[in-house]
């Protein structure tokens, strides 16, 4: 088994009465891209902050790069990079000045700093913008500079908290190329996201909801464990059809995709027969039915709904 770079044991954190993170135990292995998924307020950022040593756990323990996060936070800090949610560059400093600053506070000497900055500028295609003020960069470029700042000291472990929020799809792809490159160089990456396409780019995933860890595994494992079967249906009255399907216990989730309805079912039913039959019974004509592969998003939505209903997984 590969060595765990991050390990938590019953990690919890409360803010007053609110339990933001509840009893989270997980392991992140060396070199993997570990995705942290969960809706708003799930406790993703809170978990990362504890792992970075800037927020004390209420209970439980955590070990990051071999150090106890509560006892040796400064040792943890020296060996991680952390791109905070809404990472802010100093807008009144140029790209190079931002990089110099982060290199400096991570203790890189002037010579080492110059080499790293030149390398990072070349790698990210930022050379032409080195002297531009960070505040005048577009969103996609800002994210790239932010990533460069967070990794300028070449940490063995990198935390990225929603690094691509509000960035266009092309920039997001480029950003993920960077993440994979960093990972290929041996860096372990823990990344949070709301984007399901991004979730599928991770080696392993953790689902967190209301502070509780719901599942951990590869995207395939997670999807398989939900045992969902999904069909895409074209029906005469899509809105009424959706309302109707949602009342059925066998139906896990219904979503509109343009003219299509995407219907996920559980419990061993065959949706290719079950769904048209159910609709026909209520006089809704079905034009086409096609089975399709369940995605991480289907699994995610299903899990969250289950949990919200208080049902067992």
């Amino acid at each position: 088994m590969t060595e765990a770079v991050v390990r938590t044991e019953h990690l919890s954190r409360s803010f007053g009465d609110l339990v933001a993170v509840r009893d989270v135990s997980l392991e992140v292995r060396r070199g993997e891209i570990f995705g942290f998924l969960g809706p708003n307020g799930a406790g993703k950022s809170t978990t990362i902050r504890m792992l970075c040593g800037i927020l004390d756990p209420t209970s439980g323990r955590g070990f990051v790069v071999g150090h106890d996060i509560a006892k040796e936070p400064e040792k943890v800090k020296a060996r991680i990079g952390y791109m905070t949610q809404r990472f802010s560059l100093y807008e009144d400093l140029s790209v190079t000045e931002n990089l110099e600053f982060y290199a400096g506070i991570y203790g890189l000497g002037p010579r080492e700093r110059a080499v790293r900055i030149a390398a990072v500028l070349a790698r990210t295609g930022l050379e032409g913008r080195a002297r531009q003020l960070a505040g005048t960069l577009s969103g996609g470029w800002k994210q790239r500079v932010a990533l460069a700042c967070a990794t300028i000291h070449e940490p063995p472990l990198l935390f990225l908290d929603e690094p691509t929020a509000g960035v266009d799809p092309v920039s997001r792809r480029e950003f993920w190329d960077q993440i994979h490159r960093i990972s290929a160089e041996g860096t372990t990456v823990l990344v949070t996201t709301h984007y399901m396409d991004e979730a599928e780019r991770c080696h392993r995933l953790a689902f967190i909801f209301r502070g509780t860890l719901l599942d951990v595994g590869t995207p395939e494992e997670i999807v398989a464990r939900r045992a969902l079967r999904v069909v895409e249906v074209v029906a005469a009255d899509a809105v009424r059809a959706a309302d109707l399907l949602r009342t059925l216990p066998e139906v896990d989730e219904v979503a509109h995709y343009g003219p299509l309805l995407r219907v996920a079912t559980r419990g061993g039913v065959d949706p290719e027969r079950f769904v048209p039959d159910a609709l026909a019974a209520h006089g809704i004509a079905v034009t086409s039915v096609r089975a399709t592969r369940p995605t991480v998003e289907d699994a995610f939505v299903s899990m969250v709904k289950d949990d919200a209903r208080g049902g067992a997984v």
Binding site: R49, C52, G53, I54, E74, K77, A78, I80, Y82, T84, R86, F87, S88, Y90, Y102, I105, Y106, G107
Partner: peptide, 10 residues
Amino acid sequence: GTLEQLIVSP
């Protein structure tokens, strides 16, 4: 929001 980035550094 840059304070968080500062205090997470060594």
